[in-house]
């Protein structure tokens, strides 16, 4: 019986001691980055390059959506929230009520592409038409010059910054007081990957994701730009000079006071090297877009 309790004691001692080195490591240098799925790969690329130069820093990048990242920042479970949309009034109020001063920092620019199956004859749309498709006012491809087939409309889930951006800028056409919504019949997909998969397999589907995800399997639609009176195909150049009409800033939200590894990392992201990674990942870097 005594032996049993001795063992029990040793066991508990071990359980208490095992986490110690980890706690210590967490104390020294670790950054939690969370948020936009659009930016996960970008954040990962930054993190890898940064960790190569600073092996003592451990950076963990996770996705889940912009809202997830901002929620985590407000709940103090991450250091940097990656976001592909602006923080809402409500979120600012919540931050204030939690005693957290948040700063906004743009780190790059992203363009949204609308994609269809390569065999779909439709290759260009206006933002009005897109809005009608996503609110189910247009439900057949023949209404926009395609075959007589019902349109299968795909969207990202609500935790996605891209969802919110498309809701505000496309479905509501950028009107602040717009009340249009995604039609209930719109399929909510869990990731950009899932949308790409479905569009690849499905001749009647239309979906959207960030320019960085675009590949040969799907066809990107040209979007009408009323300023130039032309349809513009999504590509890096036109996103850079602003001719492609559907672009948005990529943001970091972080606490006002930066120190240690987080500050180093942010400086790295804004440096020339960090911004060249933005271009490598098919997003638009800051400096060039300002020039």
């Amino acid at each position: 019986m005594n032996r049993f309790f001795q063992m029990l004691g040793v066991f508990f001692l071990l359980v208490c001691l095992i986490p110690l080195p980890f706690v210590h490591a967490a104390d020294s240098q670790s950054i939690q980055i969370k948020g936009s799925d659009t930016m996960v790969n970008l954040g990962q690329a930054w993190a890898e390059a940064f960790m190569e130069a600073n092996p003592s820093v451990l950076i963990a990048v996770t996705g889940g959506g912009s809202g997830t990242g901002i929620a985590a920042l407000l709940n103090r479970t991450c250091d940097i929230a990656q976001s592909s949309r602006e923080m809402s009034e409500k979120e600012y109020e919540l931050a204030e009520s939690k005693g957290l001063e948040v700063q906004r920092m743009s780190v790059g620019i992203d363009s949204i592409v609308f994609v269809v199956h390569p065999e779909n004859p439709v290759s260009q749309l206006t933002i009005d038409q897109l809005s009608d498709i996503f609110t189910a006012k247009i439900t057949n491809w023949k209404e926009v010059g395609g075959p007589d087939e019902p349109i299968l409309v795909l969207s990202r889930e609500r935790n996605s910054g891209t969802h919110v951006y498309v809701l505000e800028e496309i479905v509501r056409k950028g009107k602040k007081d717009g009340t249009e919504e995604f039609a209930p019949s719109v399929l909510m997909m869990l990731s950009s990957q899932a949308i790409e998969q479905e569009v690849t397999d499905n001749k009647t589907a239309i979906g959207y994701f960030g320019l960085g995800y675009l590949n040969e399997q799907v066809k990107a639609l040209s979007i009408y730009n009323p300023k130039t009176n032309t349809y513009v195909a999504p590509n890096l150049e036109d996103a850079l000079n602003g001719t492609y009409p559907i672009s948005r800033p990529l943001l970091f939200y972080l606490p006002n006071k930066l120190e240690g590894a987080v500050k180093q990392f942010v400086d790295f992201v804004l440096s020339e090297k960090g911004q060249s990674i933005v271009l490598d990942m098919n997003f638009v870097p800051l400096k060039k877009s300002e020039a």
Binding site: G64, G67, I70, A71, N75, K90, E157, M188
Partner: peptide, 9 residues
């Protein structure tokens, strides 16, 4: 799908 996004409260 939506739990992760919501802010507590």
């Amino acid at each position: 799908a939506e739990m992760g996004e919501t802010v507590q409260g």
